[in-house]
Design a protein around this nucleic acid. Structure first.
Lengths: 346, 346
DNA sequence: CTGTTAGCGCCTTCAA
DNA sequence: TTGAAGGCGCTAACAG
C-alpha cells in the first residue's frame, strides 16, 4: 500500500521548508536551481504526489465537469441510448484534452435527480445529455440552473437551458433531397411517438419544405408509442403497410426508428432499397451494421462533444458564448442506394 | 450565482459556533433540540451545503471510484465498443446505489495512460473496463496495482489484475448445444483476429468440448485482423465462403463478429437461418435489431456492474474477496431459429 | 531566494 | 450542551 506522504515529508527529506516544496513542484518560480533539484529528487524518491483535494480546496474551482445522462423516465437500470453513450465518450475525451476530470451519472427517476454539483463543490459545471422524453428531468436541471448551477445540454426538448444542437432542419432537407434525387416520390416521414421536441419539429419541417419545393405529397406515419425507438419504428411501418399506403421511401427522424422500419419492411417482404429506400438521422455507429447498411444523416458527435465542453467552461467562467450548431452529413449506404451498393462502409 | 456560504455563515445566523453547526447538520448528536432546529433553519434559509472537498479532505477516503475504459490502441478519438459502454452504464448505476461518485476516462494511447487516482487522492479505486487488445494498457494498470492502486477489471486478457468475468466456457457450450439441438452439424467457430486472451480461449474450449461430445467436426474460420470486430467477422465469413467450406451454422465469439458474419452471409445470398444459423456472444443491446435479430449468449451486464463496484469497494477496504463469475443466458432469436421466429423480441 | 504565517472549509477532540 | 482550538494537505501572501 502507498503510505500517504505529504509535502512536509518531502520538505524534511530535502532539508527545506514545506512552502518551498510547493513552489518548486509547481512552476519553480522563485526557487534556486539547486534547491529545486533537491526537492524534485526528494519528491521522486518518496514518490510524492499532491493530494488533489487539498489543492482544489485551496485554489478555487474543482477542475471537474459533471456529465448527467438523462434517460427515459421509465428506464429500468441503465439506459441504452446509443447516441447518448457515443456523445458521452466524446465529451469525456474532449474534457480530458482540456484537463478536466469528468464525473458521470445516469439519472431517470423523477424524485431522485441530483443537480447540486456546483453547490456541493463536486464539479464546476454540468453537461446534461438526454433524450427529450424526460420532461421532469429537464425541468429539474432548468431549475438548478436558475439556482446558480452552470448547465449546458444536448437533447433538451425546449430552450430552457443553453443547448448545443445539430442543424436539424438543414440535415433533414439534405436527406430528403437525396431521396428525391434518386428518384423517390412517395416519401414517408417517420417521426417518434413523442413529438413535443425541438429536434423532431425541425427535422419534420426540413422534410416538409423539400417536399413542397418539389410538389410532392406529405405522407406521415402514424404515431406509435412504445418503449424504444426501434419498436416505435417497427410498429409505425407495419401500420403503413396495413393501411395500404403506397410509398417508395422512408425518412426516419432517428436511426432507432429507421432500424425498426428496416425490420418491419424485411418481415413484410419489401426489398430495400429496390422497393423502399430508407434514410435515418443521428449517426449511431451501429447503423452501418444493419442489413442492409443504413443511410443516415450523421451528426458530428465528436465536434458536439468538444462544443459542449467548451460551452460549459465558458459558462462556468461567466463568459458569454453563443452556442454553436453542429453540422450533419449524409452517409449514403445501401439502404437508400440500390444502384451503388459499394458506398457501404464494408 | 450561488454565493459561497460556509458553516461559519450558518453559525453566525443561528447564533451558535461553527462546530455546533457541523454537529447539528451531521447526526445531531450532543446538540440541544432547540439549537439544532435553529441551525437547520439557518442552513435552509442560507441554502447552505458543505463543500465536499473539505469534507473529504478531513475525513479520509474520497468516496469516488474511477472507471477507465481501455480502448483499442489505434482508436482515434472516442471508442465505440458497445459492451464496454453498456457495462459502464451499469457500473455507474451500481456505484450510485452504493453512494459512490464515478470519474470516467477513456484511455487508449500508450504513453498517456493515467492510473494514479489513489495516489493523487482523486478516487479510492479504479475499475478498468476494456477489450483485450490493448496490451500496453493492461500492463500499465497491472503495474499501477503493484504500486498500491486499488484496481479491479473486466476484459483483461490475463490474470494480472483481479477480474470479474463471464462464465465463458459454459456459455459457449450452451450456445453450441443449442445449435446441435436444432439440427446443425457443421458448426463454424468464428474467433477474433487477436487470440491471446482469456475470454476467447474459454469460449473456444466450450465450443470444442461440445463438438467433441457429439463427434462433430471442429471447423475454425481463418483469422482476419481488421479495425473492428464487425469487419473481422465480415472478412472471415467471406473467406469461408470463398474457400468453399461447407457449414450450416456459425458460433461467433462475440456479437461484433456475428454481426459482420450476418452481413457477409446476406451479401452472398445465404439465407439466415435456413442455410446458416448464427449465434453470437456478449449481448450488446443492438444485437436484437439486426436483420434477422441475432441469437446470442447474453451476459448479465447489470450483475457484472454490481460485482465490479462491490469488488472495488472490498479491495479498497483491503478485505478479501473472491471475484464472482457472471452467468450468461441464451437469447434465442431468429438468426438461429427458423422454425420459431416469434421468439424474436420484436 | 527562502521560511514563516495565514488561511481554504470542515470535522473532532477537549475544556468549559 | 456548547465553544475553542487544532488539524486534514496545500497555496499564497508576506517577511526576512
Amino acid at each position: 500500500m502507498v503510505l500517504r506522504c505529504t509535502s512536509f515529508d518531502v520538505a524534511e527529506k530535502a532539508g527545506v521548508s514545506q512552502s518551498t516544496v510547493s513552489k518548486a513542484l509547481r512552476d519553480g518560480e522563485g526557487v534556486g536551481a539547486e534547491t529545486r533539484r533537491r526537492v524534485l529528487e526528494a519528491a521522486a524518491t518518496l514518490d510524492y504526489r499532491p493530494d488533489q483535494r487539498a489543492v482544489s480546496l485551496r485554489s478555487g474551482p474543482t477542475g471537474r465537469i459533471a456529465v448527467v445522462i438523462l434517460g427515459d423516465p421509465d428506464a429500468r437500470g441503465a439506459p441504452v441510448n446509443l447516441l447518448s453513450m457515443d456523445l458521452l465518450a466524446h465529451v469525456v475525451s474532449a474534457a480530458g484534452d482540456r484537463d478536466r476530470a469528468v464525473l458521470v451519472s445516469f439519472q431517470h427517476d423523477a424524485g431522485s435527480f441530483h443537480a447540486s454539483y456546483g453547490r456541493d463543490r463536486i464539479a464546476d459545471g454540468i453537461i446534461v445529455i438526454g433524450t427529450a422524453r424526460n420532461s421532469a428531468g429537464w425541468r429539474h436541471f432548468a431549475r438548478a440552473r436558475s439556482h446558480g448551477e452552470n448547465v449546458v445540454c444536448w437533447g433538451s426538448p425546449d430552450d430552457a437551458l443553453p443547448t448545443v444542437r445539430c442543424d436539424n432542419h438543414a440535415g433533414a432537407a439534405t436527406a430528403v433531397r437525396h431521396l428525391v434525387a434518386t428518384g423517390r416520390r412517395r416519401i414517408v416521414f417517420l417521426g417518434p411517438g413523442w413529438r413535443r421536441q425541438h429536434a423532431h419539429r425541425d427535422r419534420r419541417s426540413g422534410y416538409v419544405s423539400v417536399m413542397n419545393e418539389h410538389d410532392l405529397p406529405i405522407i406521415e406515419a402514424r404515431e406509435v408509442s412504445a418503449s424504444s425507438r426501434e419498436t416505435e419504428g417497427y410498429g409505425a411501418t407495419l401500420d403503413l403497410i396495413d393501411d395500404d399506403v403506397p410509398f417508395d421511401a422512408i425518412f426516419a427522424a432517428s436511426d432507432g426508428l429507421a432500424v425498426g422500419a428496416l425490420q418491419a419492411l424485411g418481415r413484410c417482404g419489401r426489398r430495400i432499397p429496390e422497393d423502399v429506400a430508407v434514410v435515418g438521422f443521428d449517426g449511431i455507429g451501429s447503423a452501418s451494421f444493419t442489413v442492409p447498411p443504413l443511410s443516415t444523416m450523421e451528426q458530428d458527435v465528436s465536434l458536439a462533444g468538444r462544443h459542449l465542453v467548451e460551452a460549459i467552461m465558458l459558462v462556468t467562467a461567466k463568459a458569454d458564448c453563443s452556442l454553436p450548431v453542429v453540422p450533419s452529413t449524409l452517409m449514403r449506404r445501401a439502404s437508400s442506394d440500390g444502384s451503388c451498393p459499394k458506398t457501404s462502409k464494408i
